[in-house]
Structure formats: C-alpha cells, structure tokens
Amino acid sequence: MKCVAYQAETQQLWDEWVASARTPLFFFKRNFMEYHADRFQDASLMFYEDDKLVAVFPASRRDNELISHGGLTFGGMLFSNKARADTVLAVFDALLEHARGMGCERIIYKTIPYIFADQGAQEDLYALTRMGATLVRRDLSSVIHLDNRPKLSKGRKWLIARAAKLGLQATVSSDWEAFHALLSEALQRHGAAPVHSAQELSLLQSRFTQNIELKTTWHEGRLIAGAVLFHFGQVTHTQYLATNDEGKEMGALDALIETCIRESEARGAKYFSFGISTENGGRTLNSGLINQKENFGARGMVLDFYEISIN
C-alpha cells in the first residue's frame, strides 16, 4: 500500500474517484474544495495498492495536525464499492505512517454520516477503533427519513397554511446578493456570520448547477425567506436557511421548507437533512433551533470527530 500527496495533475482521476465512491459527495471534488484554497493548506492524500487507486482522503494541515479537510463539515476516507475490510485497514495503516513521516502528531478524522453512503461504508469506524482513536467531538444533526416521516406539529401546519392564504410562493432564484444580505442580518442577531460570501456561493453554484440551488420567497418586492440547498442524490441538505421578522410572522420560511421537502421527495430523495444544532464544539445544544427542525419531523443523527495520536 502506497500513500502519496494529491497533485493538481491528478484532478481528473480524483474527481472520477469521488463520483464513483460509496459516498459520492460533490463537495469532495476539487472545484469545490479549492474555492477557498487560500484559507487552508491542502494535504489531501491518495492511496494505491499495486499502482491501483483504492482510496482518497480529502484533508488539510494545520500546524502539527492532519485534518479531514478543514473547509468541509465532514469527510473521511473515500472508498469504492469494491473495497473490502482488509483493504480499508491497510489504507489506515498507510495513513498513519504517512502522517508520521509528515511530522504530524495527530490526525483529526471527521466521519461521514450514514445517510450519504450508497451502501455499507463504516469499515473506517472499525479501523479507527483498532488504531486507538478517541472520540473528541460529537455534533447533533437532524434528518427526516422521507419514507417514514413523523407528522408536522400543529404550529408548523398553521404557519404553512397562513403563508398559503397570503399567496406566498417559493421559487428558484439566482439573487445571491439579496439572499446573503438576508442571511447576514439573521445571523448577526446571534453574533455570527455566513461562512461563504455571496460571490463564493454564486461561483460554487455556477460550478455545480445540478447540486446547489437557491430558493427564495418574496412579498411585495421584498425578500422575506430563503434557503440554499445542497443536493447529494438521495439526500437534500439545507446549507443555509434565513428569514426576517416579516417572514416569520407570515410563515414564509416554514412554507418554503415544506415545499423543499416535498420537492425533494418527488425528486426521489430518501433523506432531508437540516444540519447541526450544536455549538461550542458540540457541547451545547441549541434547543430552540433543534425544536424547529423536529417540528418538521426531523430526528437526530450524529457527526463524529475522532483523534488519532501518532506518537
């Protein structure tokens, strides 16, 4: 088993591998990972057995740490459908040796939630345990299993009905500037800011037109709610949701989310993901935020971070 650093000349091979992996997520492709290359020191790795590619690892480096890429919410080792347990274990052994050779003292590994896998893909968790990895962080996310969705709460139904009476409709949009302004205003109340700029969102959408979608709701010429959706085949994920006081009162965001859920179901998706509701490295649960998601029928799913001590 041989481990080598990713090089630009292997971009096509990398992207083709991602597309055929058990976890074929578009944001592991280089045109997504490298839009913020100035913020992260890329340290992605490729693994070969008898000169045949068997795995890739989207990663970045920070001081003496090798990290499942710091610019992505999650992202572990990517294997093909043909990979078996012995191969996975050999890849992790090679990862450890390579990281040691880089002078790293630890590896931070972010696992990929089960809903994003096309088939069984948790051999990496066994490999981590065998290596003595420690669970250092666990975030709580929320997901709807669309084939077995709990009923909407009464309050949510009322707000959706209110929006319908007011004639509010969610439509596909490309007005990233207007949405970003709405999102920034909403996050500012909580002392936060969007991870992406409006220009970055527009750039990424132009690169992944089938995977990134902006849905907005307007009232009398004013934007009152919006959602950025990431489409991952069987999963639709809400990357950003935003509304203002006017939109809240009118039920605009509630109706928009319900529209997105139903459209995802019609598209053939199996899961609708809302993302995490935890803060402070997973130690604090934002009860109000997760309650909103649970009112739509979402239930818990964890995002785990493991630390492998190399020394």
Rank of each mutant, 00 (worst) to 15 (best):
Glu177Val: 10
Ala178Val: 05
His180Asp: 10
Ala181Leu: 09
Ala181Phe: 04
Ser184Phe: 05
Glu185Leu: 13
Leu187Arg: 11
Gln188Gly: 15
Arg189Cys: 08
His190Ile: 10
Gly191Tyr: 13
Gly191Leu: 07
Ala192Asp: 10
Ala192Arg: 09
Pro194Tyr: 02
Pro194Asp: 10
Val195Tyr: 15
His196Arg: 11
His196Trp: 06
Ala198Met: 11
Glu200Lys: 02
Leu201Phe: 07
Leu201Arg: 04
Ser202Gln: 14
Leu203Lys: 06
Leu203Pro: 01
Leu204Cys: 08
Leu204Pro: 10
Gln205Glu: 08
Gln205Pro: 06
Ser206Asp: 11
Ser206Leu: 13
Arg207Asn: 12
Asn211Glu: 15
Asn211Met: 05
Asn211Trp: 07
Asn211Lys: 08
Ile212Ser: 00
Glu213Ala: 10
Glu213Gln: 12
Leu214Asn: 05
Thr216Glu: 03
Thr216Leu: 10
Thr217Asn: 01
His219Glu: 12
His219Asp: 10
Gly221Lys: 06
Arg222Tyr: 00
Arg222Glu: 13
Leu223Gln: 00
Leu223Ala: 02
Gly226Glu: 04
Ala227Leu: 12
Val228Leu: 15
Leu229Val: 10
Leu229Gly: 02
His231Gln: 02
His231Val: 07
Phe232Ile: 07
Gly233Ser: 06
Thr236Tyr: 14
Thr236Ile: 07
Thr238Lys: 04
Gln239Ile: 06
Tyr240Gln: 04
Leu241Thr: 14
Ala242Phe: 08
Thr243Arg: 00
Asn244Lys: 05
Asn244Ala: 03
Glu246Val: 13
Glu246Lys: 09
Gly247Lys: 04
Glu249Trp: 04
Glu249Lys: 14
Met250Gln: 15
Met250Leu: 15
Gly251Glu: 04
Asp254Trp: 03
Ala255Ser: 14
Leu256Met: 09
Ile257Asn: 00
Ile257Cys: 01
Glu258Arg: 12
Glu258Lys: 08
Thr259Phe: 07
Thr259Arg: 07
Cys260Met: 10
Cys260Gly: 02
Ile261Asn: 00
Arg262Val: 00
Arg262Gly: 01
Glu263Leu: 12
Glu263Val: 04
Ala266Pro: 12
Arg267Ser: 15
Ala269Gly: 02
Lys270Gly: 09
Lys270Thr: 08
Lys270Pro: 00
Phe272Gly: 03
Phe274Ser: 00
Gly275Thr: 00
Gly275Cys: 05
Ile276Gly: 14
Ile276Leu: 15
Ser277Leu: 02
Thr278Trp: 09
Gly281Lys: 08
Leu285Arg: 11
Asn286Leu: 11
Ser287Leu: 15
Gly288Glu: 06
Gly288Ile: 02
Ile290Thr: 13
Asn291Pro: 01
Glu294Arg: 14
